[in-house]
């Protein structure tokens, strides 16, 4: 194993982590403010990817597609909040799980109805094609570096939004005492719709960004949704900082596990078997990490004070 390869894998882990953060940030924000578990978050990710692919195919511009993904996911989120979600805030988590589980079915089959059963095409923009040299001789795709940069921007943006703006002040207030800010005259219903749309837009953005490197197809949000739950649970549900660190931990653990475990096991077993066993162990690795974290810190690494 060379230094260049190790560095590249570390970057890969970082990039996977950033991608997970984009998804998880919206999820954890919605939970933090409204106390809602949203299983349909993966569907909004899918909406973003499909919107981007459709608009990019129609106009020929990835960037217009990206804008469309933000707009469509935010709009879909707002509609879902107005029609369904706002009836669920005072219900227990059980009802929320079931209702949003039903939303997954509706979104998936609805999308298939609109776009057909075959995956859509979406490529990265010409500006971001190609790779750069890494120290040590490796190469790294520019697009993946761009995702890391966008993730960092979103993290900073959220920090500023929540810490420095009037909306952020209300969000923080909403997190710590819902009744009180309602009593103080803040329109809590509009605030919730805005927060839900914001979280949805983040999901849509990551769907579009990731869709360009993967398959834009029905059901694409589900595997990543489960990963995001792992992320926010490790980080502490409701905490943006926790989501960031949880995402990086999961991204790096998963990538390094896939990379290193088969090689470690190859020291003990013949190569074909080591590949299989290594694959099996590395696919369980992040769940093991999560169980370990929760066994030691039952409310995640950075539990918000009030939840």
């Amino acid at each position: 194993m060379t230094f260049a390869l190790a560095l590249e894998q570390l970057l890969n882990g970082l990039q996977l982590g950033v991608m997970l953060f984009l998804m998880a940030a919206g999820l954890t924000l919605i939970f933090g403010v409204m106390g809602l578990i949203n299983l349909a978050h993966g569907s909004l990710y899918m909406v973003g990817a499909f919107a981007c692919a459709a608009v990019a195919a129609w106009t020929g511009s990835f960037w217009l597609g990206l804008a469309a993904s933000l707009a469509c996911a935010a709009a879909a989120g707002a509609v879902v909040e107005l029609v369904v979600i706002r009836r669920l805030y005072d219900r227990d988590h059980l009802d929320q799980v079931l209702a949003t589980f039903a939303l997954i079915l509706i979104f998936s089959e609805g999308t298939r109805w609109l776009f057909g059963s075959f995956p859509l095409y979406l490529d990265i923009p010409p500006l971001l094609q190609g790779a750069v040299q890494l120290p040590g001789g490796g190469e790294y795709p520019i697009y993946r570096l761009a995702i890391i940069a966008i993730g960092a921007l979103v993290a900073v943006g959220l920090y500023v939004l929540i810490g420095r703006t009037r909306l952020g002040m209300r969000i923080r207030a909403g997190e710590s005492d819902r009744e009180m800010i309602g009593a103080l005259g803040v329109d809590i219903r509009t605030l919730y719709t805005v927060v839900f749309a914001l979280g949805s837009a983040l999901a849509g953005l990551s769907g579009a960004l990731v869709g360009a490197t993967q398959s834009v197809q029905v059901g694409m949000g589900e595997p990543i949704l489960i990963l995001c739950f792992v992320v926010i649970v490790i980080g502490g549900i409701g905490s943006i900082k926790g989501a960031l660190l949880g995402a990086l931990l999961v991204g790096i653990c998963d990538t390094m596990g896939r990379f290193l475990l088969p090689q470690l096991i190859a020291l003990l077993l013949p190569p074909a078997q080591a590949g299989m066993v290594g694959g099996a162990v590395s696919s369980m690795l992040i769940y093991v990490v999560m169980a370990l974290v929760l066994a030691v810190k039952p409310r995640g690494l950075f539990p918000p004070a009030h939840v």
Binding site: I237, A291, P298
Partner: peptide, 29 residues
């Protein structure tokens, strides 16, 4: 392990354990 947590954490940690068993079954030949 799971019952040390509660609420949403309990929901998610039980999910995580089930996923472990799932991936084990998928990959065990």
């Amino acid at each position: 392990i799971s019952l040390r947590t509660s609420g949403v954490y309990f929901i998610m940690i039980t999910l995580a354990f089930a996923q472990m068993v799932y991936y084990f079954a998928v990959s065990w030949p």
